[in-house]
Design a protein around this nucleic acid. Sequence first.
DNA 1: ATAGGGTTAG
Length: 658
Amino acid sequence: MWVLQTPPIVRQGPFQSHLSCTSRVLSRFRVAFVSLNPSADPIKDSKSDNNRLIQSLCKEGNLKQALQLLRSVRNPTQQTFEQLIYCCAQQNSLDGGLDVHRCLVNSGFDQDPFLATKLINMYYEFGSIDHARKVFDETQERTIYVWNALFRVLAMVGCGEELLDLYGQMNWIGIPSDRFTYTYVLKACVVSELSVCPLRKGKEIHAHILRHGHEANIHIMTTLLDVYAKFGCISYANSVFGAMTAKNFVSWSAMIACYAKNEMSMKALEMFQLMVLEARDLLPNSVTMVSVLQACAGLAALEHGKMTHGYILRRGLDSILPVLSTLITMYGKCGEISMGQRVFDKMKSRDVVSWNSLISIYGMHGFGKEAIQIFESMIHQGVSPSYISFIAVLGACSHSGLVEEGKVLFESMHSKYRIQPGMEHYACVVDLLGRANRLDEAIELIEDMHFEPGPTVWGSLLGSCRIHCNVELAKRASTMLFELEPRNAGNYVLLADIYAEAKMWNEAKSVMRQLEARSLPKLPGCSWIEVKRKIYSFVSVDEYNPQIEELHALLIKLSTEMKQQGYVPQTNVVLYDLDEEEKESIVLGHSEKLAVAFGLINTVKGETIRITKNLRLCEDCHAVTKFISKFANREILVRDVNRFHHFRDGVCSCGDYW
DNA sequence: ATAGGGTTAG
C-alpha cells in the first residue's frame, strides 16, 4: 500500500488562523459576486444562492472559485459539501480535498455519516488510505454505509488483514452485514496476503452468507463464484453456480472465465455453447467474449476462434478494445500472426494493451526483431510503454536470442521510461542470458537484484542450466526453488533431467525418490489438435485412445525410416532405469508425437497440422517433428508452453534455440 | 449513496 505524504488534518488552532488569512481573499470575492447581483441583499439572500453557486461551480469543474466562495458562505449545506468532495476527487486535488474537509469540520458536519462515506471515497481516489481510515475512526455514528465505504477502500488496495479485523469488530458489536458488505469482504480474501488461509476464510464467509439467508442474491453469489475461481477451486465455483436460483449473464460469464483461466478451455467453450443455446434470453457481452476468446487461444483452436470472431462481428462487439486485444492474442496463439496483425491494422483507436498484444505474438513466434520494431513504432506514435510492454519485448528478445538488444531495453526501462524492473523482467533477462549460455552474467544479475528473487527467476536459471547442462548452478537454483515452492514437481523433474544428462544416475534417482516421497502431483504431458472443428487431446502412452494402434504403427514406421537416415532416439529424457528399447518406446509414445501422427492420418495433404502442448517440447519430439515435416512434406505448427515452432522442410523456425 | 464477470506477459 502506498500513502501520499500529506499534512495532517487539523481541527482547531491552526485551522482558525488559516481561515482568517484566507477570508480576506474571499471578502474580495464576495464583493465581486454581489456586484453582479445588485438587486440581492448582500448578506441575507446570498446564503442559499451561494450554496447553489458553489454547487454549479463544482459541476463545471471550477474548483478554485468554488473553494473561494465556500469561505463566504455562513451555512454551507450537506449537498454543497457533497459536490465539493466530488469535484476534488474528480480533479485529483488532494489539497482541495483537505481544505474542504477542514471547512466541513468547522461547519459542524464532521459527524455526518453521509459525508463521512463521501470523504472516505474521496481519500481513496487520492490513494490516501490513512486519511480514509482516520475519517472512519473519527465518525461516531457508523451507519452500514460508513462501514461499507471503508471496506470497499481496503478491499481495493489489498488491505485484507485490516478489513477482516474490522469485519470481526463489526460482527462483535452486532451490526448486521448487508449484501454490499459481503462482496467487499469476499474480494479481500482474493486480493490480499492474509495470515490465515484465504480459501478457508472464503469458505467461512460463504457460511455467513448462507446463515444470513443471502443465497439468492445474485451479486453476492457471483462474487463468491469468482472467489473460488480465483483460488482455482473449480468444483466449488461450479457448485455455487449450480446452486444459484437465478443466473444472469454475469454469472454465466464468471463461470466461463473460471474455466478459461484454470486451464479448462474445453469446458469454457462448452459452457458458452450452453449459454447461447439454453439461456437464450441472456446475451453474452464483450466481457463474456473475452473469456471465450481466451479459451480458443488456450486450445489453439483456430476454427473455433474464427467462429467466435464471426459471432463478435455479428453482435457488433468488434470496436471494444479489450475484445480486439484478446482477438490479436487469440490469432497469435493459434499460429496466425498475419490475422492478428490484420485485426490490429483495422483498429480505429489503439491503447497500450493493443500494442502489447501485437508485440507479444511476434515474440512468441520468434520474430524478435519485428517485435522490437513494433515496440519502437509504438513509442514513436506517442504511446508510452507499460510494465507489461517490457515483459513482452524482453520475452521476444529471449525467444530470438537477441541478447544485446535485450540488455539495452532492460537498461532503458528505468533510465528512459522510469519503470522499476519487476520480478517478471528479471526472469526474462535471466532467461535471455541463460539461454545464450551466459550463465555467469545471469547469476551476477540475480545477485545484484534489489529485492529477493522469486521462483520465476530461479526457475529461468534452472531452465537454462538444463539447456547447457550446468550441474553446479542447477544445484544452487534448485535449492532456492525447493525452499520457495516445495510443492512444484516440475522443479524436481528439471533437476533430475540435468543429473541424467550429466550421467549422474544416482543423483537423478535420489531427486526422483524425493519427489515420490512428497507424493506431489506431476503435471502429465498433454497435447491437443483441432481437426474439422473438433478438438482431440492426447496424453503420453495413451492406452485408452481408440486410434492408438494405428498411431503407433505409423510412428514405428516413421521411426524406422528415420533411423536409416541416421536418427538416434534421444532417450535421456526418460528418468526411469529401463533398458534402451523400453526407453525408446516411452519416447515414441509422447503425447506430441501421437498428436502429429493423428494429424497426418486425419487431415488432407497440404493442410497445416497445428498442435498445442502443455509443457516444453522435448528434444526428441523436436527432432522427430523436423524429420516428419520433410518426409511427409507437411507444415507442422507446434505451440509449447513457451513459444511457437514452425516446422517446414526439415527445419524449425526456432533454429533449435528454445 | 455502495455491488458481480474481462484486455496484454510468463
